[in-house]
Design a protein around this nucleic acid. Sequence first.
DNA 1: GTGATTGCAAACTGTTTGCATTTTG
DNA 2: CAAAATGCAAACAGTTTGCAATCAC
Lengths: 137, 137
Amino acid sequence: MAKEKRKRFKMTPQRLAILKYLENNKEHPSAADIYRNVSRVFPTMALATVYNTLRALKEQENVRELSIDSGKGRFDPDTEDHNHLICVKCRKIVDIRGDFSLHLPEDDRQGFEIMGNHVDFYGVCPACTRKGREIRT
Amino acid sequence: MAKEKRKRFKMTPQRLAILKYLENNKEHPSAADIYRNVSRVFPTMALATVYNTLRALKEQENVRELSIDSGKGRFDPDTEDHNHLICVKCRKIVDIRGDFSLHLPEDDRQGFEIMGNHVDFYGVCPACTRKGREIRT
DNA sequence: GTGATTGCAAACTGTTTGCATTTTG
DNA sequence: CAAAATGCAAACAGTTTGCAATCAC
């Protein structure tokens, strides 16, 4: 159908730095987080390059974008199926290992072809339990 | 702690129109959707008034904001606990009735105080199954 | 060498804010 | 009458795009 003009992914020092920052990163950083951190080691980095690289990585399925903050994307280099535990105060996101694959009965599918599911647990993280932070919805 | 200066909610024709549009609305509309629809019947409506009203409704917990599009908020007048089924192509969101309250074992909580969970099922809706749309991540 | 990527700025989208005016209770 | 809401514009945050210069392969 849609003709895939498979575009080559050229490795540049900038991309290397971004990949290195993302590798094994469990913080689910935003684009700005990535920019801020990678800039330290690579001062000429442009924010647009971060977005550009993230788009490429998403296309090749090496990064997943989470919509947990409506407002900004958070990026996850772990593309295995897994679930998240989110702090309702500071929006910290941590991974959950357990398997929560759920079965949706045919009757509840409303004609959808189901592909999978994702579970978000909500709670308050240890740091926010100590401090008396406000809930962020 | 934070002193709550309980602010009264004044009913205006604009708010009435927004509430009427939201009542029993199962489409999980964005602010722009609401504005577009309510404007038809209330042409002087300002988009800021929509946001303003949505904020008030969220504060009184009569509307919930969903973050399933990172980029724009979608609003749900159904504040009962329920889960969602999301079309990966057109981003249509439909409600799921079943109860999917899950238990997260102590060992997996990483110090979080768990408050609840939400399940998103992903799939392709009937309309998108017919047409050959692209997946939107 | 050529097509992709960079950096920068400008454009865009969604949301919030400031403020003078009007309205609700 | 006081407190709150409206409408409008300007300000913001996050993201995308256009483009000349540069770089990877």
